[in-house]
Nucleic acid binder design. Structure first.
Lengths: 188, 188, 188, 188
DNA sequence: TATGAATGAGTATTCATTCAT
DNA sequence: CATGAATGAATACTCATTCAT
C-alpha cells in the first residue's frame, strides 16, 4: 500500500503558500531551493508536485484567477446609500492590501513572462476580469455602469501609490482620497 | 577635463538606452552580456562605465527620477476650461504610455530589490514624487488640492489596466473613463 | 585590445584532449566538471568553447571523421608482396590500438545517441567510411576488391576481441590470427 | 521455500526483459524509474528484487554469460561440407543480430564500468568465452583450430560494421563477405 | 579605453535510493 | 510484498565579474 497522500490537495496547499514567496522576491530573484526550504520540503518534493519553476508559477496565476475574490463582497454590508457601499468596498480592499499587492507583483512578473511565452492566450484571465467587474457592479448598483470601471481604476491606482511609497502612506490621505471618490460619484 | 565630460556623457547615453532593455525583460531576466550586446559594446566596457549590474540599475532609477517628466506639461496648451486641461494631461499620458509602462516595470523591480537592500532610503524618490505633484497641481489649477492626487491615482490605475489586459484596451473605453473623470471633477 | 587567443586553434586542442576522456568513461558517465578539471580549465571556459556537452561530443565525432587516419598508411612501406602489405597494415593498426579502441567506444556512444537524435543524417560519416576504404584499397592493391572490406571487417573484429578480453590478449594469438589472414588472402 | 523459488523466478524474468531496455539506451541514459515503468512495476518493487542499479546491471551481464547461446548451434543442420556449416553459423548469427547487437552495447557499458570498479575479475566472463569457442569448434570441425577464432573475429567485425552503418547494410554485401570467408577457409 | 577570455559560485532540474504506509 | 512520496547530492549549464592584453 502506498503512502497515503492526497496529491492534489497537498499541491494546492503548497501553491497557496508559494504566493507570498513569489510576490516577495519576484519570479527571477527567487530560487527553487529557497521556495522548497520556505515550504519545508526538499527540492525533489517540489518537483514531485510541480513540473518546473515556470509550471509552478503558471499554476499560481491560474489558482489566483480561479479563487473568487469577490466572494468577500457578498458578506459586505448591504448599505442603502451608494456612498456607504463605496466606502465598504474600498475599506475591504484596504484591509486586504497585502494580498492585492502580492497579486499585483505576480501580475507584473506574469506580464514580463508572456513576452517570450507562446501566444496562446490564457483563457482564465478573461473570465477573472469579467467576474470581478460583474460582482462589483451588482454590489455597488451604480446608475452609470462606466462608474464601476472607474472605481476599479481608482483602486488599482491606490495600489500603485502604495507600491511607489512603500506603504508609507498616511491613513488620512487614504481616507481623503476615498472621500473624494465618494463625493464625486455620489454627486453624479 | 574634457575626457571626464565625455565619459559622463557616454555613460548617460548608455543609461538612456538601457531603460528599454530592463523594462522589456525585467532585472532578473536580463544579463549583462545581453545588455552589452544590445548597446553594441563589450562586457568589459560596460563594467568600465558601471560598477555592477545593481549599480547600473540603480543609476537607471535615479536617472529616471531626475529626468523632469513634467517639463512636457509646460508645453501643453493652457486651456481655460478645467476639463480641457484634464483632457490634455490624460492625452499626453496616453501618448507616452510605453514610457510610463517601462517606468512601472522598473519600479516593481526596484521595489522587490529594496527588500534585501540596505534600508537607507533613496532620497531622490521623494523629490521625484513631490515635483511631479507640484507641476501637475500648478498646471491643472484645481480648486480642491486633493483632486490633484486623485488624478494621479486615476492615471496609475489606467496604467495597471493596460498591464492587466496587455494593451488590448479599446480607445472607446479610455475616452469614456477620461470623460468620467472630467465630468466628475468638473462638476465639483 | 582583447586577450590574444586563437579561439579555433585552442578549441581543437581541447577537443583533441577530450577524446581520451570520453572514451575512457563514456558519454553518460563523464561530467562536464570532470572534463574541465582534466583539461585544466574551468567549466565556464569549457562552455566558452563548446555550446553544450552534446555539442562537444558531436564536434569530437566530426573531428575524428575529418582527421585522415589513412595518412599513416601512406608512410607505410611499399612492399612488393601482398602478404607484407597486409602485415604492415595490421601491424600499424595494432600499434595504434589505444586510439582505435577510443574511437570504437566513441562510436558506440554516438550510436546510442542517434536513437533519440534528429534523423538528419550526419554527412561527415559517409565521407569518412568511403575515404578509409579507398585508401586501404589503393595501398593493398588486392585483386579481389571484396577482400578489402574483408580486411576491414577482420580488423574491427580484432578490436572487439580486445575489448572483450580487456586487452589481455597474448601477442602470439594476434600474430597467429594475422598470419591466418595473410595465408588465406595470399593464397587467393 | 516455494516463495523463494517464486522470488527468484520473477527476478530472472525481470532481468530478461531488462536486457533490451539497457541495450536500447545504455546504462547511463536509462533511469531506474524508466526501467520500472517499462517493466510495469514500481521503483520500490524494483529495489525489492535488485540491490541497486549497478547490481541490476551486473546481474544482467552475468545472466547473459550464463545463458548458453551456443545451444542454438546444436539445432543447426549437420552439414557435410565445411562451407555449409560456416554458412549456417553466419546465417544464424545474422538472424539474431538484434540480440548480439544488444549484447555488444551491454559489453561496452560493462567495459567502461570496470574502469573504476574493483579489479576483482569477474570469473563468469572467462567461462563464457571458453564455452563459446568450444561449441563453435566442435560444430565447425575445422582442420586448423586457429580458424575457429578467425571465424569469431570475422563475426565480431560484421557486428561493428552494422553498428557503424546503422544497420543500413545491403544483404548483397553481407552474402558477399560471407562467401569470401567460406571461399578462403574452404580452400585451406 | 576597450576587448573578450576566464572564472566559479549559483541555478533549475534529475535521479538513485529510502521508507512509511 | 508492493507502492510511490520524499530526499538531497549531483548534473548540465549560466552569469556577474575580473583581468591580461
Amino acid at each position: 500500500m502506498p503512502k497515503i497522500v492526497d496529491h492534489n490537495r497537498y499541491r494546492r496547499e503548497l501553491l497557496q503558500r508559494a504566493l507570498a514567496i513569489f510576490a516577495e522576491q519576484g519570479y527571477g530573484a527567487i530560487t527553487m531551493r529557497q521556495i522548497a526550504k520556505r515550504l519545508g520540503v526538499s527540492t525533489g518534493t517540489l518537483y514531485h508536485y510541480f513540473p518546473s519553476k515556470e509550471g509552478l508559477f503558471m499554476q499560481l496565476v491560474q489558482e489566483l484567477c480561479e479563487r473568487d475574490i469577490t466572494d468577500f463582497f457578498d458578506q459586505a454590508p448591504v448599505a442603502a446609500a451608494v456612498g456607504d457601499r463605496l466606502r465598504a468596498v474600498v475599506a475591504f480592499y484596504l484591509e486586504n492590501f497585502r494580498f492585492y499587492q502580492q497579486q499585483l507583483l505576480l501580475w507584473v512578473d506574469f506580464h514580463q513572462h508572456r513576452q517570450r511565452a507562446a501566444p496562446d492566450e490564457q483563457p482564465f484571465l478573461q473570465g477573472f476580469w469579467q467576474r470581478t467587474r460583474d460582482r462589483l457592479a451588482s454590489y455597488l448598483q451604480l446608475p452609470n455602469p462606466a462608474h464601476v470601471d472607474f472605481v476599479l481604476v481608482f483602486m488599482d491606482g491606490l495600489l500603485l501609490q502604495f507600491l511607489y511609497h512603500r506603504g508609507e502612506i498616511e491613513s488620512d490621505w487614504l481616507t481623503q482620497q476615498m472621500e473624494v471618490l465618494v463625493a464625486l460619484i455620489d454627486a453624479h
